[in-house]
Nucleic acid binder design. Structure first.
Lengths: 218, 218
DNA sequence: CGCCTGGTTGACCACTATCAAGGTTAGTGG
DNA sequence: CCACTAACCTTGATAGTGGTCAACCAGGCG
């Protein structure tokens, strides 16, 4: 989105900040606002009545939140760390979209990316083993770090092991064990559990989806 | 979408038919077309290199296919039975969307529904037990049958046990076993494995997500 | 008639969840 | 500055759900 195309868009959005563990909204709340992450990481999740939790997405700078909502939010959104967001009244964003085809395309592209990511996650949850899931997670994080201009192979994890487990459909114990196993195999290395250095990204890519071709691209 | 709002939309779409097991397109194909199902059921799925398969959606009459595609289709689409679709050149549909805000809203609502469904499926695959998955599947099918004006409690399954298993992240043996178990418990009943009568939809709803409140709604 | 696909059921086993204990770190209050 | 506490992380032992392997049945089609 070029600046001039979304002057109205920029103007309708107020800025809000949230402390770690604070909720932007709860599943079932009336969805009056859309959000866009400016800084920090937001965790979106659904709960079953007995407390089982599935994290559907971690949102980083630039990501929209709430685009898929109908009347009510279909998930809860928690800030994982210090988070800054733009916040728009839904009606305002929709009005703006009527005006600007550029904004329309941006929003459309965003929701399409979200859908693609969800479909990849379906494959992960439905068919991958625990170590494949963790490897896929690390691969996705390194790719994201690269896109954001990161140079080193160190991935920063703002979320806890429980958050990761609830994202990957595992338990936190299993996530721990597999991180340890990858460490023992020399695939990753870390002292701080929230800063993981990827030592062998080719091996990780192979583990992620059994694709031997990934090695050729290394 | 009212008829007059989408005259152009109707006019750009050619009609195509596919035989059972025929593919509309393959994952990785250049995504030149969008589709809309008129009749029959289409199965969308992704494959891992070793052949493991995850069905991401079954598409019925009215569903759009391919809206989430970027340059390439992110999944393969197979006809499960005799299928009729409308087929649009992507560029044409996009041009039409620039013109008609009604079409835009319809497409947007469609992709939003798809995203919501995917997020529910994430919860199912990540956190539900085998019997909860099968129960959820049957509940979704009965709800869909109701929306389509169906009166009886008989659900028609155009897909095989393998398709269901690949949708629910299980094996076909497990799906069979749980159908048999539900039958033994008097929750469903069937002679033909593709026509399942739901005898106790309240029990099914409870099984689907452990929500005891579902009983109150019965 | 015989093959092939799809469905069902059983026996066994592996992967990952569960339960449990201990370690580390950060934050808090004395 | 240090003791205390509460999260969070890690590792081990055990168990259970669902996968794997195998056999058999039914129906459709060449």
């Amino acid at each position: 989105m070029r600046r001039r195309d979304c002057a109205a868009f920029e103007s309708i959005g107020g800025v809000a900040t949230y402390a770690p563990k604070e909720s932007l909204f709860w599943e079932g709340d009336q969805a009056d606002f859309h959000y866009r992450v400016v800084r920090g990481t937001v965790c979106l999740y659904k709960l079953l009545p007995d407390g089982r939790r599935q994290v559907s997405r971690f949102c980083h700078a630039g990501d929209f939140i709430g685009l898929s909502a109908n009347a009510a939010y279909p998930y809860t959104a928690d800030a994982l760390n210090e988070v800054t967001v733009q916040r728009f009244r839904r009606a305002d964003l929709e009005a703006c979209m009527e005006e600007s085809s550029t904004l329309r395309r941006a929003v459309f592209a965003s929701i399409r990316d979200e859908l693609n990511a969800a479909q990849n996650q379906l494959l992960l949850l439905g068919r991958k083993s625990a170590s494949e899931r963790v490897a896929s997670f690390l691969v996705a994080l390194t790719e994201q770090a690269l896109r954001q201009g990161g140079e080193s192979h160190v991935v920063v994890l703002p979320m806890t092991r429980v958050d990761i487990a609830d994202y990957l459909g595992l338990t936190h114990e299993t996530v721990c064990r597999i991180f340890s196993q990858f460490k023992a195999q020399g695939i990753v290395s870390f002292a701080d559990p929230h800063e993981i250095e990827v030592c062998d990204d080719a091996a990780l890519a192979v583990l992620a989806d059994g694709d031997m071709d990934a090695r050729l691209c290394a």
